[in-house]
Design a protein around this nucleic acid. Sequence first.
DNA 1: CTGTTAGCGCTTTCAA
DNA 2: TTGAAAGCGCTAACAG
Lengths: 329, 329
Amino acid sequence: MERVNIKYLAKELKMSVSTVSRALHDSYEISEKTKKKVLELARKLDYQPDPNASGLREKRTYRIALVIPEVANNFFSLAIDGIESVAADRKYHVQIYLTHENQEKEIAFVKQLSNGRADGIIMSVAGDQANTHLTDLMGNKTPLVFFDRVPSNIDQPSVSTDDYESTFKATEHLIEKGCKRIGCLVVLDNVSIGIKRRQGYLDAVEKHGLEVFTLDCSNDIQEYSKEIHAFLKNVKPDGLFTSVEKLAVSAYYSCLDLGLKIPSDVKVVSFSNLPTAALLNPSLTTVTQPAFEIGKEAATILFNLINDKPVHEKTIVIKSELIERQSTQ
Amino acid sequence: MERVNIKYLAKELKMSVSTVSRALHDSYEISEKTKKKVLELARKLDYQPDPNASGLREKRTYRIALVIPEVANNFFSLAIDGIESVAADRKYHVQIYLTHENQEKEIAFVKQLSNGRADGIIMSVAGDQANTHLTDLMGNKTPLVFFDRVPSNIDQPSVSTDDYESTFKATEHLIEKGCKRIGCLVVLDNVSIGIKRRQGYLDAVEKHGLEVFTLDCSNDIQEYSKEIHAFLKNVKPDGLFTSVEKLAVSAYYSCLDLGLKIPSDVKVVSFSNLPTAALLNPSLTTVTQPAFEIGKEAATILFNLINDKPVHEKTIVIKSELIERQSTQ
DNA sequence: CTGTTAGCGCTTTCAA
DNA sequence: TTGAAAGCGCTAACAG
């Protein structure tokens, strides 16, 4: 079977390729009659334009790249859904690049992408080290939007959540529940998230005149498990805020070990985007980010950039929600 | 700044474009000296080949497409990780297409993809309806591998889990724990999974001479919540197998409502790939599929197909694991 | 309103 | 060992 391309359509229709091309693009300079004939045959033969050819010609790829640390994570999964939904509307495709928190990979990806592999990039940085490489690459013309983990030293459109405010509220929530010794488990790295969240906690406990107990956890599960265990044993908090879900999970286990009951002995609030986890465990109150909306927002901004439309606000902040579950114990 | 392409490199090096191209591809007919010079400059100028151009020429896109129902789902997330890891090794890119369980979209994607948009397709079908459309498209030359939800009526390489065996074991696990009235919640659609899982349950209870209680749940959350509630109320099982996680979550809530304690009153085993959910809730025993390996395996087969290497086994089955958590109640 | 043609960046055949 | 040139499928400037 012969390949169905424009040339083939043209031959069949006894027209020139340019007429066919224009008809397919619904150009104003083509008669309705011709358009109809072309469209009909195209549909009949199930013609699909070759994206390589049109991309080469137009210098558009109809692809956006999504560079993220991992995908096995509810937040990113939902964000992908959001991004894909707006991309699909615009006939764009989403290509996924996983850094696995590895900065080398991130650099390699961005380099690749900066040379026409995609019309735009959405990324959440692998943030445990310095990120000067991004600044270097920023001279680049490929539109770029950050989301979630936004590098603090770079001026680029971004979408994130109200980390400070929601942590402040979460901490006050614990205080309202009667907690007096509130601990804060946080991962601090080079991205703004950890810092902002900790600050929210700090300001809230300070406002209410409570003592500060923070633990800056390392990123390795073995390490932070030990650290958290020791922390809980020493501090004996009656309330706990954790900046990311995995810390809450680890704390949960440490509590089991130490014979502490959640939430009767220790009330826990954690950032989390695992609706199912939260559903399954009514003892965990969560701060949940609207990941889907964040994804949509980031993609929308990116498309504005791609199409040279003005971007009104450079920094979009989307509110997260405090979801409290009634205890069943 | 001028665009760095082969022509530019050639001009700088005072060579022809073909020499540069060959050098970049490490062709045997180029002298070491020339190669070195070319590679050096390419690295220095950070040359990146235009994938559209090479794709157009080579009729290769260096892209594989992943067509799945959703991504906000731990199983698929992990599978993506697996797929991406082997794709990245081979300098391939992964493009994601979400069907949102919508067959129209699935058809549209496959049509698009069948015309050179990707070198291969990995898919998990949106399976609540007939899937004759896939058969129609199968005449197509684009390599295709199914995973997870494999259409039962199509002969194509596939990777899935030992649904029957693991359900059989899961049911026997409940029997060993002393359950006498074991219920089975399942979603039956046009893909093989539900059917196989139910069969595993049926054969296990029959083998042990127990009564059969199955519920074929609908796909809508409102619907199946009601159905499950009624089922639990009527049947009053002391053991429960659920074929997918969401049914376990719903059952969990119904149990709360009905004043049934898990696992003391009802022991539950569910297929689940939410490690965190399982961690947070020690009362749920799970059958967990090695999603990452499944993804890797599917991608590996696809690349064999793409590179015209023989595929030894058409149907790969990967074992899932029964993960029992000790109750803390 | 329609056709002819150049050229996007790359690979590869053919020629030297 | 290297170079010249054709052509992948498509779009758009230019010419009618």
